[in-house]
Design a protein around this nucleic acid. Structure first.
Lengths: 188, 188
DNA sequence: ACCCCCTATATCGGACCAACATAGGTTAGA
DNA sequence: TCTAACCTATGTTGGTCCGATATAGGGGGT
């Protein structure tokens, strides 16, 4: 989903500035699945304006930089409607953490335990944040998406907690029981 | 995790060509969390060679293009060891699918059901593939990573199956019960 | 007084992806 | 038998995007 389409989508909900779009993607539940940097958003809005899909008015603010508030044109609304019907590309889950764990056998036991603890704590914090954000429901779509975020992160956390002994034990006793592992890792 | 580090990691397991690295990331369990294109891998290997972290030998093959098989130098092995101790950047889950569902209220009921069915089927296929790949265990790290992949995808699939009625029902009856949603979405 | 953070727009270097180019070999179907 | 599709294998190119930086005034904390 390119940044232009993301901008169209957020502008279909309400008129917004580039800065507001960025904040929504940083702090909002949608930000768990969609990201974009300033370096992508501002050029995207410029190009959308050139193409006649959005327009903006400059709002002079007191003690703050001027704000460019963008709104969808009818052409922009139609373009977004069509974009939603396009084939959807697959989800992409990227994890440097799991890349490191791939090499668990080569890590020191203390370091391994430390990064596992740290990651579990991060997951807990993230779950708490999404839940607190969701005291104010915004409709079935957003609620559903937030729920899916919680389901996935909870599963990841639970997996780490329940299976960490498989790699932690190994890194301490790998001379004794090399390459053995509990087959139940893979479930059934 | 930049592509150069990924290459060092895979070369720390065995000597490999750029093409083999790409195939491992496409088909192997690590590919669920780490990706890289040819357009990134080949320049990365060139640069690693320039920096003295890897070296290669050209293998002339019968009826096939020559293969450049890369291997780590001691400096490369040391660089990778240090890279594993660097701070780990957060996981990133990107989903165009959930972006579309964010706008579930604006989608036609048939189309919504169709993409939900499709996504659930994709998850099932992926789970089956990872499990079959894992008939041959490769050590605790890889097994653990594959297990986490299955845990996450299973959770995502289960969530879709158990909660899809919340957005499907709504898109059919949204005039009657606008913006209502089942609070149990967010679990407890 | 000093520093850090917030709002707000914008640009730049570099990393990266998707697609294409090249080239011979194999497999499968009409 | 032709041919279309796919596999191995390396590489380049256009364009997208991220992370950092620039600019600039205001508010809040110590």
């Amino acid at each position: 989903m390119d940044v232009r389409t993301v901008c169209l989508g957020l502008l279909s909900e309400a008129d917004r500035s580039g800065y507001e779009i960025k904040k929504l993607l940083e702090d909002g539940p949608l930000g768990n699945f969609v990201e974009a940097s300033f370096g992508a958003i501002y050029p995207a809005l410029t190009r959308l304006t050139e193409d006649g899909l959005v327009e903006f008015r400059t709002e002079v603010q007191d003690g703050r930089p001027d704000k460019k508030t963008y709104s969808l044109t009818p052409a922009g609304r139609e373009t977004f409607r069509k974009a939603l019907a396009e084939p959807i590309s697959p989800d992409r889950f990227r994890s440097d953490f799991l890349f490191v764990l791939w090499f668990a056998e080569t890590l020191e036991a203390d370091y391994l335990s430390e990064i596992l603890d740290h990651r579990i704590a991060e997951f807990e914090a993230k779950i708490a944040r999404i839940k607190s954000e969701h005291d104010r429901p915004e409709g079935p779509g957003p609620a559903f998406v937030a729920g899916q975020a919680i389901a996935i992160i909870t599963a990841a956390k639970t997996y780490l907690e329940e299976n960490r002994h498989l790699i932690e034990a190994d890194s301490r006793t790998r001379i004794k029981t090399p390459r053995s592992f509990d087959a139940t890792v893979l479930g059934d």
